[in-house]
Every structure is written in structure tokens, then in C-alpha cells.
Design a protein around this nucleic acid. Structure first.
Lengths: 106, 106
DNA sequence: CAGGAAGTTCGATAGTCGTCGTACAATGGG
DNA sequence: CCCATTGTACGACGACTATCGAACTTCCTG
């Protein structure tokens, strides 16, 4: 049971950007960044079905954004912050710094 | 003939990331950044057909990454660098700083 | 005016994506 | 041992995407 993670040097910008370009996944990344304590996928508040969640976590993992480790029946997830900073300095910070939404502020 | 450009405050992170997550568009953005002089779309070296180019430029424009202005029969394009920096500080710089490809360096 | 240059628009095609439900597997507690 | 919990795998479906070629529009120039 592989759980493939791309090595840091092989992270591709386009793949990472694509992984981050979905609102749900952006939300996942934000939550993981807010509380860096690794936790199982299920411990994230998402209004999507289990299978969809699995899908999003896989996209993030295969792009190299998160790392997942099996732990009993749970799958613990954490951000690959250091790897991302090394490969694309400033990218994750910029993404996280962006306001989640900006409905035409006064 | 509209040529819609989203106002700076309404730029959406997910849309911008999605616009940047395609290799061809990433290339366009890089070229525009390398030489900030506005130029018509056709003056970019791309190995894609005219219609595909039109498509990519529209995606970039509607996401707010570039600005296009009609000028005779040509359509002049430039990066919305300032707007992007204002709305998502550091994002564009991080994307541009990333090596175009990293085939497992020594 | 005729023709070329620059782009758009349209329709088509093949592929990917996000989402879901159902069925399945593995682990750990009563 | 049974069963709840946690998550995967497998289709499936509709929507969107990247790409193309062909036809069209606009403008400029000889």
C-alpha cells in the first residue's frame, strides 16, 4: 500500500498550483496550517462526502502539498511546509496570507 | 466589445491559482514578467494554435492575471503585477521565482 | 480596393475533474 | 467475536478543459 509522496526536488509548480486551486482543498490546507498538529483526515470540518474527501487528500498528497501516514485505521495528515518552502520559497505563505474571500470591502 | 477585467478587490485566489496552474499559461506569465513591455499576444513564442492561445489569454484575463487592451487589430497584453501584489502579496513573486523545471538536481 | 496580419468565434473531440453512493478492508473496543 | 469507526476502491455522471481547424471580422498597407 504505497501512499506515494513525490520527493521535494521533484515537486512541480503547476501541480502544486492546481492542487491549491480548489476551494475545498484550499480550505483543508488552511486548516492544517492554522493548527499544525497532524490529525486524521476525518478531523477536518468539510461538507463533502467521504469519497470526495479521499479524492482531495490524494490530489494534495500526490502534488506534494501534504504528507499522510497510516496510523491504525486513521490516516494522519500534515502540511509539507518545509518542503514547499524549500522548493517554492514564499508560495505557501502567500497563499495562506490571502484573505479567504473578499466580497468587495468598503 | 467587453474585454472583462475583474476589479482588484474581487480577484479570487482559487481562480488565480487555477489560471496559473497550466504550463502554457505559466509560460505566458513568465514571458510577460521577463519583459514587462506590453505586447500583442502573437508576439509570444508558443507552440499552440491561435484559438488555443486566445483561450489561455482569456482565462488569464478573467482571473485578473493580465490586462488586455485592443489596439488596432492587435491586442496588447501586460501583467497586472501591481494589482496581484496588492491583493495577494508575494504570490506572483513566489510563482515567478520557482524554477521552470527541476529534473532531480545533483 | 485587394490582400495580408491579428485575433475571435464556433463546433468538435478527447480528456480530466469534482462529486456522489455503494461496497469493501482494516483496526480497535465491548 | 461482533461491530463501530475510519478510510479506500470502484463505477458513474455531469461539468469543465485544452486543443484543434475552419470560417469570420477588423484593421492596415501597397
Amino acid at each position: 500500500m504505497g501512499l506515494y509522496h513525490p520527493p521535494t526536488e521533484e515537486l512541480e509548480l503547476a501541480s502544486v498550483l492546481h492542487a491549491l486551486s480548489d476551494p475545498q482543498r484550499l480550505r483543508i490546507v488552511r486548516e492544517l496550517a492554522d493548527d499544525p498538529e497532524p490529525r486524521p483526515c476525518g478531523r477536518l470540518e468539510l461538507e463533502i462526502s467521504k469519497s470526495t474527501r479521499t479524492h482531495h487528500f490524494r490530489v494534495l498528497r500526490e502534488a506534494g502539498v501534504i504528507r499522510q501516514k497510516q496510523l491504525g485505521t486513521a490516516r494522519v495528515t500534515c502540511l509539507r511546509r518545509g518542503d514547499l518552502d524549500e522548493r517554492f520559497p514564499g508560495l505557501l505563505d502567500a497563499v495562506l496570507a490571502a484573505a479567504p474571500a473578499e466580497p468587495t470591502p468598503a
